[in-house]
């Protein structure tokens, strides 16, 4: 099946693989940034204590009522929206999400058709970034939430007792520590995104898998191109995880000072 000649003819298309590599890396990088911002919002929404019907419970602190009125007074809409979002995106296949976004939600929009970096087709790239971001935000937000909740509540009490607002407490005390703790998990999510971004070739994003497809169409063989693609993915993800491990070890050493 695989042959030297096969590799030789596949290597003629190496330019396609290079462009695919640039595309995959951009796809993953944009996704991790957008996904992180969205995940932060989701995490804060899940922890928000906004209770619009709190006034129905006339006891101070609003924990006293039982029954339906009590239920309504403790109803937290932001939390509900974020929870539903997270559960839906974690419980459905990424490919279904990608197709719904590309063929349904963004179908009516006329996205600008220029080429990013002179080679990436913007109108295909953006739906890919959006789908991957929405999907990874669901996972990242749970990572962020656990990171925030791992910070000892005494810190928040100290900050609040010094007169800091909840926002100042988050910004100066909780988030800097939480994000440092979850950096390895975020970086792992980055590796996952690199691998999952392969799915975007199905909507015509010219990333690595789409290069494989082009080689297949031109040479009528696919094995060699797939091996090359696998090697490229491996060269992207393996060093990334090793670098993460290195920093993880270094940071945990710092903590035990």
């Amino acid at each position: 099946m695989l042959s030297i000649e096969g590799f030789q003819s596949a290597f003629k298309y190496i330019q396609l693989f290079k462009e695919g590599l640039v595309c995959t890396v951009s796809l993953s990088a944009f996704t991790v940034i957008l996904g992180f911002v969205l995940a932060l919002v989701l995490a804060l929404m899940r922890m928000a204590d906004l209770r619009p019907f709190r006034f129905l419970d006339n006891t101070q602190g609003g924990e006293g009522r039982t029954g339906f009125i009590g239920f309504l007074s403790r109803f937290r809409p932001l939390n509900l929206i974020a929870s539903v979002y997270i559960e839906v995106f974690r419980a459905t296949p990424l490919m279904v999400q990608l197709f719904i976004i590309y063929y349904v939600l963004l179908a009516g929009l006329d996205l600008p058709t220029f080429k990013l970096f002179g080679l990436i087709r913007f109108e295909r790239f953006i739906p890919g970034v959006i789908a991957l971001s929405l999907n990874s935000a669901a996972y990242l937000s749970e990572i962020i939430r656990s990171g925030i909740q791992s910070i000892d509540g005494g810190q928040t009490e100290a900050a609040r007792s010094l007169g800091m607002t909840q926002t100042q407490n988050m910004r100066y005390i909780v988030l800097p520590q939480a994000i440092k703790n979850i950096l390895p998990a975020i970086a792992n999510e980055f590796v996952t995104i690199i691998k999952e971004s392969a799915i975007c070739w199905t909507i015509g994003v010219q990333e690595i898998m789409s290069a494989v497809n082009s080689v297949k169409a031109a040479t009528f063989t696919i094995g060699e191109a797939l091996i090359i693609a696998a090697c490229i993915y491996f060269c992207l993800t393996f060093p990334t995880s090793k670098i993460i491990e290195y920093f993880e070890r270094k940071m945990s050493r710092g903590d035990k000072r």
Binding site: G154, Q155, E157, A158, R160, L162
Partner: peptide
């Protein structure tokens, strides 16, 4: 709260 300083059992330094 600014006008009430608080010291905790477990210090709660940042």
């Amino acid at each position: 709260r600014q006008k009430m300083g608080m010291v905790f059992q477990h210090f709660n330094l940042f």
